[in-house]
């Protein structure tokens, strides 16, 4: 069974890093969005199982992406991970308030990042009916 993961980040290098880290795991299909608007469009057209999003992005920021997922009853339960260099308390609290499941601050530690993603995926698969 493939797991559809949406990655939204405007930094090409970060996208490359996340892509390569996730390529270590098997059965992941990755959807790449270079801004928030693209991420929301991808959500409309595909079934997404996990979202990894940056906060500062053009057109629509990470908070708007999370809100879009949470507003839609079909995607309200999809786990969302924020990966951002903004580490201030307000941003983290705002993210969690909107429904994010985890917050990882850049720079990321590859092993830790992977285990957090796996944990969220395992948790969401047990929640499935």
């Amino acid at each position: 069974m493939t797991v559809n993961i949406l990655i939204a980040d405007d930094d090409e290098v970060m996208l490359q890093i996340i892509r390569s880290v996730l390529s270590r795991g098997k059965g992941f299909q990755l959807f790449i969005a270079r801004n928030g608007k693209e991420a929301i469009q991808i959500k409309e057209k595909n079934k997404i199982d996990l979202v990894i999003t940056d906060l500062l992005m053009p057109y629509a920021n990470g908070f708007e992406v999370i809100s879009a997922f949470r507003r839609d009853p079909e995607t309200a339960g999809v786990p969302v991970v924020i990966v951002s260099s903004i580490g201030n308390e307000e941003a983290v609290i705002e993210g969690f308030k909107l429904g994010a499941d985890d917050f990882i601050q850049k720079p990321i530690q590859v092993g830790e990042f992977m285990s957090r993603i796996n944990r969220l995926l395992a948790k969401s698969s047990t929640n499935l009916p």
């Binding site: 970060m14 890093i17 850049k106 990321i108 830790e112």
Partner: peptide
């Protein structure tokens, strides 16, 4: 320049 960009985004062993 690219290595620095990578290094800014990862930490730990990879860095």
């Amino acid at each position: 320049d690219r290595m620095i960009h990578f290094k800014k985004n990862v930490t730990g062993d990879i860095s």
